[in-house]
Design a protein around this nucleic acid. Sequence first.
DNA 1: AGGTTGACTGGGG
DNA 2: TCCCCAGCCAACC
Length: 123
Amino acid sequence: MKWPEAAMRASNGQVGQVRNGAGLFERVYALVRQVPSGRVVTYGQVAAALGNRRLARQVGWAMRTCPDDVPWHRVVNGAGQLSTRAEVGSFNPQRAWLEEEGVEFGVGGRIDLRVCGWNGWQE
DNA sequence: AGGTTGACTGGGG
DNA sequence: TCCCCAGCCAACC
């Protein structure tokens, strides 16, 4: 959709107690860009890193329209499953991409977060 | 200004 | 473990 218009607009809003002078979208992208290949994080983790756990849904909304240099495929839901709607027919590019990076999928298409989950923002 | 929508979560059954 | 449901909150009618 309208990137970067939407991001710009979001930049003057405020999120809970988070003052996003840098722009909510930009903050999300900057965070996601730090996730290393072969590892994944959850929407909730990103939201927590932003300072407000309840922004998980908005993180997902932000992922919908992100720059090409953002590894959006490394963001999954708390159950370790892909919640993307990016799949084309029965083929899910997000899964294929992750498998290329070495991420394993168990039965039901679940990723073991204890193995592939990343946690570099925990201060 | 008010209602609807989610690429979400955590808790309860 | 799985399913359902009530919160959530910015974006978008």
